[in-house]
Design a protein around this nucleic acid. Structure first.
Length: 244
DNA sequence: GTCCGGCATT
DNA sequence: AATGCGGGAC
């Protein structure tokens, strides 16, 4: 019979309990004090927000802006027009987002869905109940959990915590979470330990994104300028001590 | 694990 | 010019 671990937390499991809520809130406050209000999501319309969420997959925001402006110039920054446009034309306009054939197909899939199910009115789609909408989004080709949660939080304004690779890198480096966690598991963990507050979820993800993008880099992280130094170093120390 | 295939870095 | 970074969907 496999012996049950007691005492120290298994490194492969997510920590639980009231102290987790406090730790997450302190991470949030360190970041907010350093970076202030990031004002996400940067978009003028809901349609632009959703299109941007699809285009930004796997690429920098800078490239996404180029593609958004190309689409805008072509009058394709809305789902009715995208549904009517040819994939080839769309693909050429979104070349800066790198995986342009894939992105064009994803845009077309979403446009088709909004057109056939909601007569082209995105707001009507986003008014579905939280869980219904999440399932519906995930069923659209090219919409995975992160993009779905982007749309739920920044588009529909539901308290859906957005997890991304930066979230995992930052928190696992600090020793707060294991390196290998599934998306759904980590999202549920955040949502179980934080108040379901839309502006806070909005800002928390934006802050983690900023840190992972500019400071907590995959290679040669700039730890000297990290606002989480205190939390991070503390955790690493504790782990080292408890291993001896 | 694989796909996608621009752009920053070297 | 060449390399490889990079990450979300499947």
């Amino acid at each position: 019979m496999p012996e049950k671990r007691s005492g120290t937390q298994n490194r492969r499991d997510l920590p639980q309990g009231q102290e987790v809520s406090e730790l997450l809130l302190s991470v949030y406050h360190y970041l907010e004090n350093a970076y202030g209000d990031l004002g996400w999501w940067p978009a003028d319309t809901l349609e632009e927000m959703v299109i941007g969420a699809i285009l930004v997959q796997n690429v920098s925001w800078k490239n996404t802006v180029k593609a958004l402006s190309n689409l805008n110039r072509a009058g394709l920054l809305n789902f009715r027009a995208l549904d009517a446009a040819g994939v080839q034309e769309v693909a050429e306009l979104v070349i800066p987002t790198r995986f342009y054939n894939m992105k064009a197909n994803r845009l077309k899939s979403f446009a088709r869905h909004v057109t056939t199910q909601y007569e082209g009115v995105l707001q009507h789609m986003l008014q579905q109940p939280f869980e219904v909408l999440r399932k519906e989004l995930l069923a659209i080709p090219g919409i995975g959990p992160e993009t779905a949660d982007d749309i739920l939080l920044y588009g529909a304004k539901y308290p859906s915590f957005v997890v991304d690779a930066y979230t995992i890198r930052v928190l696992s480096r600090c020793g707060i979470i294991p390196e290998h966690v599934t998306y759904e598991e980590l999202r549920a963990w955040f949502m179980a330990h934080l108040p379901h507050n839309v502006p806070m979820f909005n800002q928390f993800h934006a802050l983690l994104d900023r840190l992972g993008n500019r400071v907590c880099l995959a290679k040669r992280p700039h730890c000297d300028e990290c606002p989480l130094q205190e939390v991070c170093d503390l955790r690493l120390q504790e782990r080292t001590l408890s291993q001896s």
